[in-house]
Write a protein that binds this DNA or RNA. Structure first.
Lengths: 230, 230
DNA sequence: TTCGGGAAAACGTCTGATGACTCACGCGCG
DNA sequence: CGCGCGTGAGTCATCAGACGTTTTCCCGAA
């Protein structure tokens, strides 16, 4: 087996076997090199690999540690790769977001949380009163993020966030011929979702969220001939 | 900015800007070092990072290339990190699988594919006639994988596969007190899913898949006091 | 007791050299 | 002329060593 792969397997094994739990500290690099039988360069490349995946963190001057191994945190690391996926693939991802976020929105509606509804209302007020692309994107993310969080599954929140972040790179809300129509449709979609949450109607919430995201899919699909990543 | 981070940002930029598309070849390492202003060690660590994320591949003796940037392939890379997530986090992930696979199963049922149904039937026949843990796991993966593939979204298939792979590390089907009861419940669940597909009833298929996976969640939840990763 | 300096520990980066693998070119044989 | 096949250039893989930077902690002085 190649040196770096050997180191990688060794490091993963140390975690998988339970020898090192979340937050635990690895031995110093020289010791690990000796233990794994590879040079420091190879060990460090292996550490970088696991670092990119959110499994390990190296702290300069302190040591190398196992991360918290929290699913949401690990999924967030995906944004580094997901943000490079071409438009065609983003459409597949949006179906995932549509299904998951629809589920989370229903769960949020099933709860009875006046604070959430109030907060969402404020966000929508702001969102409807702006036409600045960056601000729209930011408020849209806050709106959907709050709802997903209320859904109760941080993993779902992280996944939808990563996918939403990718879609956000395509500037749907650039001032242009269809800007007003698109903005109004989007705003209405948000209000429909909030309305379902206010009336505590999970089925309506799921439908509204699904329709809203499906609309986004349509807009992105229209960009297909000429994708314009940020 | 730190050297490795600078290299990482530079490499990502080369892809994000469209300078290098899927499958394109990077310049040789010495040239990249010069271009990015870092040493070869730092560059290689950055390359490893992106390699772990499935964004680029180094081929010994040939060169370094941008990957296909296929969402399903990128998501498969997650298994390296997801397989290290503790049981508590796996339960959150299983909710994701339940929602996604339920959706995909409904889509599979909506299609009219006699070949799929026939294939699934054969797999279940085999599955019901074995009590060997590894074989059960293998056939179970094939059954669910076929259905997800029929759902039409490779990204969903990849995601559910990663999560299923993680769950599979917990040996639910070890011979033990409840083995027969668990096996029978599992087999019945599979038959219910196949039945819904055969009758082309998407709603029933979604419900059956959801119930089947929810059952798995219950079994795993019961392991919580004493998780036993592979 | 508190604050600050300094030494030790650990990761971060760079350099140079050597090995291993791939691929294509060109030579020689049939 | 066509087909292998060897060979060499190109490229990544690995190793070894040295030095810089950051963190951490101990210990002495106020």
């Amino acid at each position: 087996m190649a040196a770096t792969d050997k180191a990688l397997a060794g490091l993963r094994q140390m975690i998988a076997s339970g020898e090192l739990g979340p937050g635990a500290k690895f031995p110093p690099e020289p010791e690990l090199c000796d233990h794994l039988g590879v040079s420091r360069s190879s060990l460090r490349e292996a550490v970088r690999s696991l670092g990119a995946l959110g499994v390990i963190e190296s702290r300069h001057g302190s040591g190398t540690y196992v991360s918290a191994l929290d699913p949401a945190a690990i999924i967030s690391r995906f944004s580094l790769s997901v943000e490079l996926i071409p438009l065609e693939g983003v459409l597949e991802l949006l179906e995932v977001r549509r299904v998951l976020e629809s589920h989370a929105t229903a769960a949020a509606a099933a709860r009875q949380d006046p604070d959430l509804a109030e907060h969402l209302g404020k966000v929508l007020d702001q969102l409807e009163s702006t036409t600045e692309a960056t601000e729209i994107q930011h408020l849209d993310a806050e709106f959907h993020g709050l709802i997903c969080s209320a859904g109760g599954n941080p993993t779902v929140t992280a996944l939808t966030e990563v996918i939403r972040g990718r879609g956000g790179h395509y500037r749907i809300f650039e001032p242009g011929a269809d800007f007003d129509a698109i903005k109004q449709t989007s705003d209405r979609g948000h209000r429909a979702i909030l309305s379902a949450i206010l009336t505590r109607d999970p089925a309506a919430a799921a439908t509204a969220a699904s329709a809203h995201i499906a609309q986004t899919e349509l807009w992105l699909r229209a960009l297909r001939p000429e994708p314009r990543p940020a």
